[in-house]
Design a protein around this nucleic acid. Structure first.
Lengths: 268, 268
DNA sequence: CTCGCCAGTTAACCTATGAAAATGCCGGAA
DNA sequence: TTCCGGCATTTTCATAGGTTAACTGGCGAG
């Protein structure tokens, strides 16, 4: 797995993630990588991949870079409802409904693969584990969305922001995108505000507060969490909803808390 | 469709809803009704069907009554992340993940059908439209969840509550559970507060305000919306995410704004 | 070099919302 | 009947967070 071809490297985050959700057969991996290679795309930062009301006819999988899903009210108020990180799927099965309810915009340069509906459906029919992996992806995404609901509805500002940091960190970890206590964090404070339901000003205050408490460092698009447990406890973060533990590969929460991605060159 | 057997009547909301999402073949309807009959259950109000951390091994479909999905923080703060209304599915594909991230509790007496995983998978394999209907249900549910995110994060109190009323009303309509401008609303103000991310007290204030503005009547578990358009505009409600229009049966938003469920005896 | 723009930061002020506590209503149990 | 507990309501008081408005530093364009 280490000495893969450049293309294999591209699909690495995806394969790794899927394997955690649902172990894939070798053939499944090969078929998936093949399908990904057939539809490679790149986008610059700030590009809309999908706009609310569009209809979509395929599935997009993010190979590298960050995107976010967002919705906007008539008067301009915007809510980022989720981030999409390397290895994650933009819109599995979205083609089943006539229009999509939200927009998807890149936050950074992004590499992604697009698999058109017929190709995707053939792929799903060809391998059971792959089909289940995509379903898992969908179900997991819903779980994350629900956690965002309680984050937006019931947590205080500091908890909200801390929770977001914890979640992102834990979502980057299994795809090898954290380096010790640090990870990329290529998101402006305005976006962060829209993700947590705060005003920019108050978000800034809250970040200062987290810094003052020594819970995070955030500088030059890089987030460092010196004491993850402390941050988690400030956030009332419990990771169950992310299904990182107890699934296929990783059995114990304790056993996996470090040293999973250290040897990996993959960068988002 | 009017003179169905009692059992047909039970499954009516489900079939009707699915037909809107994805028209079902006659065989699909028969197979679905059969599967529902094989696993009928009832529950009283306030019962937990699923508790956060449980593992589930089947799919539950609500035939009548209301439930809600909710999550609770360590310190007791609770967020209702969605309601589950007659005709809707509790947890399609949730069995794919080892544990469930949220609890499901009945708000009223509930009749539901439980289809165990093997039976469910056989059913999905047997009919393409049925499989797609369940997938649609899942995707639609995610869309609703995202709308809740913007509701919790970006709308003001009055808008939140108004939006919730609009959404519930529009979700009850296609299954024949609204009667003119009114529908059942069997939810305490405490639950309403937890669904909108407000305190009970402020929720009450907000309800008073909606009443004073003549936008709603809420009495004895019955909600009346004298001027739906007015309420929608107060809520910044745009129904696209519910996929009520533009899908299978209903083509135009205007054309469907009344007279859809008037002749139907089905009650939740 | 300067202009303009964007992200970040800070301050002053203000209001929407939360918290606590008390009241009244109603229906069920004894 | 009386008591009790759940729910809705109202009031008062406290505060988290929103709004507005500068001011900063960096950086690319000209």
């Amino acid at each position: 797995m280490r000495a893969q071809s450049k293309e294999g490297g591209l699909a690495q985050a995806v394969v790794r993630r899927f394997n955690l959700l649902r172990p894939l057969s070798e053939e499944a991996v090969a078929a998936l990588e093949q399908a990904i290679l057939e539809g490679l795309f790149r986008a610059g930062p700030g590009e809309d991949l999908v706009v609310e009301g569009d209809s979509v006819d395929g599935v997009r999988i993010v190979l590298s870079g960050w995107l976010f899903r967002h919705k906007t009210l008539e008067d301009g108020r915007r809510q980022i409802v989720n981030f999409i990180l390397p290895g994650e799927t933009c819109d599995a099965y979205a083609y089943l409904l006539p229009t999509i309810d939200h927009s998807i915009t890149t936050a950074t340069p992004v590499a992604y693969a697009e698999i058109k509906r017929p190709r995707f459906e053939k792929l799903m029919a060809s391998d059971r584990t792959l089909a289940e992996a995509f379903l898992c992806e969908t179900v997991l995404n819903s779980a994350i969305q629900r956690e965002w609901a309680i984050n937006l509805g019931r947590r205080a500002a500091l908890e909200k922001v801390a929770h977001l940091f914890c979640e992102i960190y834990e979502r980057l970890r299994p795809v090898g995108l954290v380096d010790g206590a640090s990870c990329n964090f290529p998101v402006t404070q305005m976006d962060l505000a829209d993700a947590t339901g705060l005003s920019v000003v108050h978000l800034n205050r809250t970040i200062q507060e987290l810094r003052a408490a020594g819970l995070i460092t955030l500088r030059e698009r890089m987030l460092t969490i010196p004491d993850l447990d402390a941050l988690k406890s400030a956030a009332l973060f419990s990771p169950g909803y992310l299904q990182l533990y107890g699934g296929g590969v990783i059995k114990s929460a304790r056993a996996s808390s470090r040293g999973f991605a250290a040897d990996d060159p993959c960068r988002g």
